[in-house]
Amino acid sequence: MSQGFSARFSREEMEAIRKSLRDETRFGADFMARLKRVAKHIPFAEDLLAAWFCARDPGTPRRVRLTLLAALGYFVLPTDAIPDIMPLIGFSDDAAVIAAAIAAVAGSIKPEHRERAKAALAGL
């Protein structure tokens, strides 16, 4: 993972992300539970899921997986730069982090990941 991407997080945020990623099963459950709660309220839910499916794909390069998992970890964190309970702007920091991560690895998110994301959203 590049220094530029990780430098956007505080030391405490990076440690919380690392801690949550150590237990991948729990991280996945936390991610899906949080997404189910907010999916209908955020316009970037499909991007979140596509990033998740890309990160879980064994064919995805490690650097890409780590970049996406760090961004998804930020989404899962209960504390972030702008509290998610704030109307309208609460998820803007999460969207910015996800957008930056996706832009950095855009070529790795395949149409299959996007199709799985659409199907999963339809089932929520």
Rank of each mutant, 00 (worst) to 15 (best):
V64R: 04
K40G: 14
D30I: 00
I89C: 12
P78R: 04
F31T: 05
T79N: 06
H41E: 15
F91V: 04
L72Y: 06
A120Y: 06
E115S: 14
I109E: 07
A95P: 00
A39R: 00
F53I: 06
R11T: 12
D23V: 08
A81P: 00
D94G: 04
F27V: 08
A45V: 13
S92W: 11
A71Q: 02
R8H: 09
K36Q: 10
A101I: 10
R63G: 04
E12V: 15
G123M: 10
F53D: 10
A103K: 15
D30Q: 13
V97K: 13
A55P: 10
I42R: 01
L49F: 05
K110S: 15
S10C: 09
T79H: 06
A122I: 02
E15M: 08
R18L: 03
L68Q: 07
R34Y: 01
Y74I: 10
R116C: 02
R114C: 09
Y74A: 09
G28C: 11
R26Q: 15
F9I: 08
L68A: 07
G4K: 10
Q3C: 01
A45E: 05
S2F: 01
T25G: 07
A99T: 13
G59E: 15
R63D: 14
A55Y: 02
I82V: 15
S92N: 09
Q3P: 00
R34F: 00
R37M: 11
A100G: 08
T25F: 03
C54Y: 03
I42L: 05
V76S: 05
V64P: 07
E12A: 15
R37L: 12
E115N: 10
K40E: 13
G107S: 14
A101D: 12
R18F: 01
R22N: 15
R65W: 07
L68S: 08
C54G: 07
A117H: 09
M86K: 06
I102H: 02
V76M: 03
F44T: 07
F5Y: 13
E24T: 03
R37I: 01
G73Q: 04
R56V: 00
R63C: 01
G59N: 13
A70S: 11
R56N: 12
R18Y: 03
A33E: 14
A51W: 03
D57M: 07
L35R: 08
W52T: 02
K19P: 00
L68C: 05
E112P: 01
E12W: 02
A120I: 01
G90K: 07
T60F: 11
P43H: 14
I42S: 09
A119G: 05
S2L: 09
I102E: 13
Y74L: 09
S2W: 02
H113M: 07
A101G: 10
R114K: 15
A71C: 08
A70W: 02
Y74M: 10
R114D: 13
A39D: 02
P43V: 14
